[in-house]
Design a protein around this nucleic acid. Structure first.
Lengths: 187, 187
DNA sequence: CTATGTGAATTTATTCACAGCA
DNA sequence: TGCTGTGAATAAATTCACATAG
C-alpha cells in the first residue's frame, strides 16, 4: 500500500485483504490500545510498528542455522527474513566437507561450535537436519542457551518449558490442500 | 503408537499428545460419525484411515514441482510426502542447464511442458520459485488445469475461486517465535 | 461525512457431566 | 469397569450497531 502512495488503510481494506469482517480487525487492534484515526483509518507506518512491537519483532534477532543441506541452503538464500528483523548470523553442519565453506556470507562451522551461541548473542536456531538427529541437536541447542527453535524436521521434539519450539512439517501443510480442492477445475 | 505394539488409543492419550481437552477430541471425531469403541478407545489403524478419508488424502495425488533451486531440491529430497499419499511425478525449471537432469528419480523438464499436466493426471503443484515469477507461473498452472497450489514464494498469488492455494512463508512462521519466547533461558 | 472504538448481541467453540455400551 | 458419544452448560470469538472523534 505504501508503494502505491497510500498513507493510511482502513479496517475494511485490511478485512478484504485477509478475508474477514472489518469489525474483527478493529476489535483485535483495540485490544492493544487503538492506534487508528476516526474518519481516516490506520497510519500504515505506525501500524507496522505497532504490530512488530506486539509480536516482539521490533528488535533484531540473531539466528543460527543448523544443517546446511538442501533445506538449510534454501533458508540461507531466502530473501525476506530481514523484513521481520532476523539475521542468520551463523551456520553449522556435521559434514567435514562443508566446514569452512562460505554460503551466502556465512561461514559454515562444525556443530561442536554450537556451545558458543550464547556468547555470540544468538538466541534463535533453525533446525534443518534429518529426523534422526533432531532431538539430539535440540538438546544441544538447549544447552547452548537458545530461547526459540524453528524445527523443520518432520518430528516432535521435546524441550524444557522455558524454550519455545515451532515445528514446520511441509508434508502436513501439503495434507491440508486436498480437503479444500474443488472436484474439477476447468482448463 | 503402532510401533510400540498398541492397537488402540484413547481420547485422553491423544489429548495429552496435542495438548487439548479429551472431550474436544471426542466431540471432533463424533462430528464425522464416531468411530471409537466404548471402554476401549479408537482403533489406530481405523482412525488413520478415517482421518485420511476426512482430509481427502485417502487417494494418491500426483504432484508437479515448479522450480528446482535450493528449496525445490529440498522438497524433492523430503521424506514423508508418501505417508500422506503424495508423489512428486514431475519437476520443472526455467534454467536450460538443469533441463534433462535427474534429481531424486525425477527428470527436470522445461516449464513450457507444464501444459501437459492435466494429461498426465497431475492436479497439484508446488511453486518454489522467486517471488517475481510466482504469479505468472500460477497463471500457467491454472491454464494447465491444476486444482491446488502450494506456494512457497513469499507473496500473495491470485487465482480463480475454483483453485485452492496455500501459501507458506517461512519468514512468517519465523515471526511467530519471538512472541512466545521467554525473556531468559538458562544454560 | 467517514471510519474508529466498543458495549451488547449473537454465534461458535470448548468443556462438563453423565448415560450407554463393550 | 473404562472410555465413548452427546445433550446441556459454559466460555470464547465474532459480529452488530452506534456513539464518538477527526
Amino acid at each position: 500500500m505504501l508503494d502505491q502512495g497510500h498513507k493510511s488503510i482502513s479496517s475494511g481494506q485490511l478485512a478484504d485483504f485477509v478475508g474477514v469482517n472489518p469489525s474483527l480487525i478493529r476489535k483485535d487492534f483495540s485490544y492493544f490500545g487503538g492506534f487508528g484515526t476516526r474518519g481516516v483509518g490506520y497510519d500504515i507506518d505506525d501500524l507496522v510498528k505497532q504490530i512488530k512491537k506486539i509480536l516482539k519483532i521490533n528488535v533484531m534477532h540473531r539466528v543460527a542455522l543448523v544443517g546446511v543441506g538442501n533445506l538449510g541452503s534454501a533458508v540461507l538464500a531466502y530473501p525476506g527474513f530481514g523484513v521481520y528483523g532476523f539475521e542468520i548470523a551463523a551456520a553449522f553442519d556435521i559434514n567435514p566437507q562443508k566446514i569452512g565453506r562460505r554460503v551466502h556470507n556465512v561461514v559454515i562451522e562444525d556443530v561442536s561450535e554450537l556451545v558458543s551461541l550464547k556468547k555470540r548473542g544468538i538466541d534463535i536456531a533453525i533446525v534443518a537436519i534429518p529426523r534422526d538427529a533432531a532431538q539430539q541437536t535440540a538438546d544441544d541447542l538447549v544447552k547452548a542457551g537458545v530461547r526459540g527453535i524453528l524445527n523443520f524436521s518432520p518430528c516432535h521434539i521435546t524441550v524444557p518449558r522455558k524454550l519455545k519450539v515451532i515445528t514446520i512439517d511441509i508434508a502436513m501443510d501439503f495434507a491440508r490442500l486436498p480437503y479444500y480442492m474443488p472436484r474439477q477445475a476447468g482448463a
